[in-house]
């Protein structure tokens, strides 16, 4: 019976998607090397300016969060990141409304909210995560970005 086959396929697909979602949601991936190579950044490294994000860049790192009104995990992400930066020095958190910055959203190819970009002191996007991250994922990422900063002092 076709219906039964479709049901089994749909449930299998749900399990696969569910596991994939839990594995990838909130995980930071590298978008540019944390430590600048001597020859300079690769040409495709994406850089954001203080003007684009509306606040001065953090001296150690900047967490740029893209949010929409239609997004429940965005609030939890905002609360988490605000709390993290309040305990760190030189780290800035800024929330950008994706809907009123659609040009930036297209340029950065942001598909989901929340998407969190981690900028180094020069504004280069070095890490990126979509979905609500866990606190330890944020702290590990910040430590990695900081380590890169320190190596070049």
């Amino acid at each position: 019976m076709t219906g039964l086959v479709v049901l089994v396929v749909a449930l299998t697909l749900s399990v696969v998607l569910g596991l994939l979602y839990q594995r990838r949601n909130g995980r930071f991936r590298e978008t540019a090397p944390t430590v600048p190579v001597p020859a300079g950044r690769p040409d495709d490294a994406v850089r954001l300016s203080a003007q684009q994000i509306g606040v001065p860049l953090g001296t150690e790192a900047t967490l740029v969060q893209f949010s929409t009104a239609f997004c429940s995990p965005c609030r939890a992400t905002k609360a988490l990141l605000s709390d993290v930066v309040s305990r760190e020095t030189g780290v800035v958190h800024v929330e950008i409304d994706a809907e009123s910055h659609l040009d930036l959203v297209r340029e950065l190819d942001i598909m989901r909210t929340p998407t969190v970009l981690v900028l180094d002191p020069a504004g280069v996007v070095v890490r990126r995560a979509s979905g609500l991250p866990r606190r330890d994922q944020v702290l590990t990422t910040l430590a990695a970005v900081r380590a890169g900063v320190d190596l070049n002092k």
């Binding site: 749909a10 449930l11 749900s14 569910g18 979602y21 839990q22 949601n25 429940s72 942001i110 989901r112």
Partner: peptide, 21 residues
Amino acid sequence: LVAAVLNAAVGLCLGCELYLA
């Protein structure tokens, strides 16, 4: 069904994800 199962099981709201797209 896939959307409903994902919402129930892992709290992923596919309909919400479509909004920004």
